[in-house]
């Protein structure tokens, strides 16, 4: 339904997205996950024909987004970051207007507007002026305008941002109810949101796709892999090197790394990452340390959280704080 190949976008000399490739099948909900400024909005704007790409192709329902822009726009319902609303119009009047410019025929219009309003729970607000609605209702009107022409593809940019927890749940349920034979792409920087609504996740960082998988696979992959932190007392440096190499030889051990923490002399700390589904590695690690005549001062199992891996995937050498800061700035300019 949606195919994106080697898509890149430069703003002057800044790269917003680089070589982004993914595909979404009919009926799928793809979650676009990434920190602020990672290029989510840019990708979505290219898909909707709002922005031209610098290079690469994007196709929606077989139409190229730039060459066949008008054809693509007919296939797509789009909710931008800020819902595009006319405050002086009523909910119903606004949806009628959107249905008209989206090319819904006069005969179908009343019915389509009605069904979009009932799906989004707007029936009791139909004659209310948009400027008098609460933020949650405005967001619903935003979603309603994206589905009023019953498009096969729906693109939602951060649909739950700025809502209270109850509204977030409502909007997520609404999005799930929209699936079926429609294709949905939604962007978010909230991890659990993806696992709750999406059938597939693309993690994007600094304009590049770093992982694509189903949320279940990502979750299992992440929750099964665990690691141990081991603090050892040893008299010599050779003992340390020897221990590391023998730990690496154990079955089920994926990686051993030395943690640089200030410790008293003759003490060191290791992180041993185990492979997925490996069992009783902890026992073997303890036995190795003690068997080598070393002192096992502390041993702790740490479960890798979803957040950890997300951060691992999305942060490089740069320290996290300054990283997100500079990227938020770029978003500010992009918006």
């Amino acid at each position: 339904m949606i195919e994106v190949e080697h898509l890149s976008k430069l703003y002057g000399s800044t790269t917003a997205i680089e070589d982004v490739t993914f595909a979404v099948e009919r009926g799928e909900i793809l979650g676009f996950l990434g920190p602020n400024g990672a290029g989510k909005t840019t990708t979505m704007r290219i898909l909707t024909g709002y922005l031209p790409a610098t290079s690469g192709t994007a196709k929606v329902a077989g139409f190229e987004v730039h060459e066949d822009s008008l054809a693509v726009r007919r296939q797509i319902g789009y909710l931008p970051e800020t819902p595009p609303l006319y405050p002086e119009m009523t909910v119903e009047g606004f949806l009628h207007f959107v249905a008209r410019i989206k090319g819904v025929s006069a005969g179908d219009r009343a019915h389509q507007v009605e069904s979009a309003m009932s799906r989004c729970g707007l029936m009791e607000k139909r004659t209310t002026l948009i400027r008098k609605l609460s933020k949650g209702y405005k967001q619903r009107v935003g979603i309603a305008q994206a589905i009023v022409h019953d498009p096969p593809a729906i693109i939602l940019d951060e649909p739950t941002v700025g809502l209270d927890p109850r509204q977030i749940i409502e909007v997520r349920n609404l999005i799930k109810s929209l699936a079926g034979d429609r294709t949905i792409i939604l962007s978010t920087h909230i991890l659990p949101e993806v696992s709750m609504t999406c059938s597939r996740v693309a993690i994007i960082n600094r304009g590049r796709i770093v992982a694509t998988n189903t949320p279940e696979n990502l979750m299992t992959q992440l929750s099964e892999a665990s690691s141990y932190e081991v603090e050892v007392a040893a008299d010599t440096d050779e003992a340390e090197t020897q221990l590391i190499s023998s730990l690496k030889g154990l079955a089920g051990v994926k990686q051993v790394e030395r943690l640089t923490i200030n410790l008293p002399e003759h003490r060191f700390k290791l992180r041993v990452t185990t492979e997925q589904g490996a069992e009783s590695v902890g026992r073997a690690i303890a036995a190795t340390v003690v068997g080598g005549g070393l002192g096992l001062e502390e041993m702790r199992r740490t479960q890798v959280s979803l957040e950890d891996v997300f951060l691992q995937l999305t942060t490089e050498e740069a320290p996290l704080e300054t990283d997100t800061e500079s990227q938020t700035e770029t978003t500010g300019e992009a918006a």
Binding site: T48, G49, Y50, L70, A71, R73, R74, I76, Y78, P80, E81, T82, P83, P84, L85, Y86, P87, V98, I101, K102, G103, Q145
Partner: peptide
């Protein structure tokens, strides 16, 4: 200012 230009620009209308 309202962002509705994005709606117009992504609708099938010239």
């Amino acid at each position: 200012k309202r962002g509705t230009l994005e709606l117009l620009a992504t609708s099938p209308i010239t």
